[in-house]
Design a binder for these strands. Structure first.
Lengths: 199, 199
DNA sequence: ACCTGAACACCGTTCAAGT
DNA sequence: ACCTGAACACCGTTCAAGT
């Protein structure tokens, strides 16, 4: 009992997050529990409370890792050489590809909710903002004459829209209506919105 | 013990759903449990399994009630006398107003997820389809010359987009980026999309 | 200082036993 | 046929006790 010192605090945090991430990826947010995470890494439940404030904190950190992976995917989408409208479509395709490849991890970001009154950490908000920025840069290239305000608004509108299609698509709450693919629906959204915006 | 016969099966189902709905409305999906619902209506947990297959079935039925209320709100939005683009904006405003007035009930529809492999009942899908239809009717009025296929696709794209803005907005995952209101972002989405679509 | 093991107050679900 | 009460296998969280 007590004091094994096999891992540093930081190592413990890392292996716990990796175990939790794998549980999210394979079984979804509902498939994760503090006890399961602990047993996967060979510790008892109590140990997790040495490195995480509580269970929500653990999930929040898993989700931040997913946001990092998602942002990396978008940032890796080479876009500089493309015409702006094509660049935005490429970014949208990367976003959708991530959501489809990692549905459980991607959904967990939005399924997890903090108790009433508790705010998400600022680092979380910043990671979301980074993604909007990538889109906004292309919108500014598309319409350089427009004021910045227009493109920040457009980036949010467009990206929230893409996001909504992915959510409903993965929920299978979209397919029931007629059988359009996520790609077809986002394609329509992008085509019409960009046509309107650059007009 | 046993056999009180104070309520018929259907009455029991109704008061349970009402109690669950109130718990969702005030505390969100996480604030509901079978035990809490049972105690609110003066029964023990086991009784709920006489009228619901399991807890997911109970939540699903709560969510169908919310979908009915949402559809009623949209159907009540008088739209016949308006120009189609204005009508679509009015429908979007009703949708947003519902989400903002009943955030917990509205979010519960999309937060609840069935275990892997289980499909939502067809009645659920039909209720979503009904909502898309209301939007599609106006899109067809807007561009009568376009094939039906275009307006079904557009209804899904546009409505999923509005939906995405609401989701991110309520999550406060949208506000952090710059402080645009849900109304401003959906306004942009509608303006640009409709400009592109009717062009 | 680190970690366990047990306790506490909760879960969803089942089912023998009572009326 | 209806409903309870207790049981089962789970939860998140805390913390005295051991090394």
């Amino acid at each position: 009992m007590g004091r094994r010192n096999e891992h540093t605090r930081e190592e413990l945090r890392q292996i716990a997050l990796e175990a939790a991430e794998e549980l999210v990826a394979t079984h979804g947010l509902v498939g994760v529990s503090a006890r399961k995470v602990a047993s996967r890494i060979g510790y008892t439940v109590g140990s997790l409370y040495m490195v995480f404030r509580n269970f929500d904190d653990l999930i929040l950190q898993v989700n931040e890792r997913t946001l990092d992976a998602l942002h990396a995917r978008l940032a890796d989408t080479v876009v500089e050489q493309l015409p702006p409208a094509t660049a935005i479509r490429a970014l949208a395709n990367s976003y959708i590809a991530f959501a489809l490849a990692e549905p459980n991890r991607w959904l967990a970001i939005y399924q997890h909710r903090l108790p009433r009154g508790e705010a998400v950490p600022t680092s979380f908000g910043e990671k979301v903002a980074r993604m909007f920025d990538l889109v906004q840069q292309q919108l500014m290239r598309l319409c350089p004459q427009r004021p910045t305000h227009d493109s920040t608004l457009a980036a949010r509108a467009l990206w929230s829209g893409i996001h909504g299609v992915c959510i409903l698509g993965l929920d299978q709450k979209l397919e029931v209506v007629g059988g359009h693919s996520i790609e077809a629906v986002t394609g329509s959204l992008l085509d019409q919105y960009l046509a309107g915006f650059s007009q």
